[in-house]
Nucleic acid binder design. Structure first.
Lengths: 210, 210
DNA sequence: TCTTTATTCGCATGAATATGTGATTTGTAT
DNA sequence: ATACAAATCACATATTCATGCGAATAAAGA
């Protein structure tokens, strides 16, 4: 039985979710409050939910501040944000504060149920739009440093092999070339980078100097 | 009709996915190749898929390198990684390179179909385990990777020497110990870190995994 | 056409590394 | 008192790496 709590000041929404989840045979939602402060009170009194559904816009402390405090005191509780906000700032603040999932409020009840199960199975439920924003966070940040590699495509391949900790033999296998070719490339790489050991190439590469 | 391409060198898997997706009324998978190089050739010849499913471990260029090149030349193509790798390094490399989704290979065919639709609707398909790793990246960028180093002070010194690109001899000189002592320490370091080459130690260290 | 560059391959050799099997000393914890 | 981890050193050997020399092919430029 998954014990669930909800912090949501809109009573209509809260009741709807509570009723629906309580109808599920493997779920129980008995902790339904409309502020972080009340939830903290319940937790202090020994209540021990597995998952918390949390709004951001709340009376008193915001949901994001709530995450920080709750995760600090009760790190084993998983928190899913359930909110109307889809701006990157609130999303990332929530995730950085310790939320394990982020759903938008138009998420259907069955999807909320699925998300909770997903979370208990080691997943991280997100609405598609949220996932997109999270992914985009990785996509762009790059254009800062470009140390003019000078390395050819193949040479870059070889460097990647080295970084992966492969021996010449394994690199040769990976690219289906002879070990002597690998040697040849490495010679050229060393010349271009002004180094003379695998170690230095790996270090340079991982420091972003290639 | 969603035009799909797949880069996957395992013909069994590729054929299975191809047949399944072609059975969908709104999807068409005609571009099925087993290397990035071949896909680039098709794209150059005017093929224009909406979505690419891409493996990471491929003959020739890796899938991650492939993303970079394809996204640079054809930024409108959405790429979903479909691979067995679930280590953070490969996930983040893929996302940073421009992937819009990341699925593990045990994903069922209907889920792959859903993921493609999700993507076309502005989502970012991810397997739950992947989503979790992505979220964790925000949760606590630091304490997550504290794998209990176990390395002693001296061992850490040696690791630093390796990262600086020094040979055993030079490390011995730096700390005024014999080269055999350096060897001994390195043996112990390898055991503790479960590696067996300088290269891997340097890589781990620079990734903050020590 | 001629030149460069990228990529491929081979052979050879000394240097460095990986790994095994020891051993001694000095603290610290039990 | 003694058990144990940390640090030190030695010897041996098989593998891997660094590097020199040489060379062929194909693609891209001058």
């Amino acid at each position: 039985m998954i014990e669930i709590g909800i912090v949501e000041d809109n009573v209509k929404i809260r009741d709807l979710i509570q009723k629906f989840l309580n109808m599920q045979e493997n779920m129980s939602l008995n902790l339904a409050v409309d502020s972080v402060e009340e939830m903290l009170e319940l937790l202090k009194n020994g209540k021990n939910p597995d998952v918390l559904l949390m709004d951001i816009q709340l009376p008193g402390m915001s949901g994001i501040e709530g995450i920080k405090i709750i995760k600090q005191k009760y790190p084993e509780i998983e928190i899913i944000m359930l909110t109307i906000y889809h701006d990157s700032h609130k999303i990332f603040d929530s995730l950085c504060a310790g939320a394990s999932g982020y759903l938008l409020k138009h998420t259907s009840l069955p999807e909320i149920k699925e998300s909770i199960e997903n979370l208990m199975n080691g997943g991280a439920p997100m609405s598609p739009q949220i996932a997109r924003k999270v992914i985009q966070h990785f996509n762009d940040p790059q254009p800062e440093k470009k140390p003019e590699s000078n390395l050819t495509t193949r040479e870059q391949d070889i460097v990647n092999g080295l970084v992966d900790g492969l021996s010449y033999k394994l690199i040769a296998d990976r690219y289906s070339i002879s070990i002597d070719t690998v040697r040849a490339h490495i010679r050229n790489i060393y010349k271009k980078l002004h180094v003379n050991s695998k170690a230095e190439v790996i270090a340079k590469s991982l420091r972003g100097e290639i």
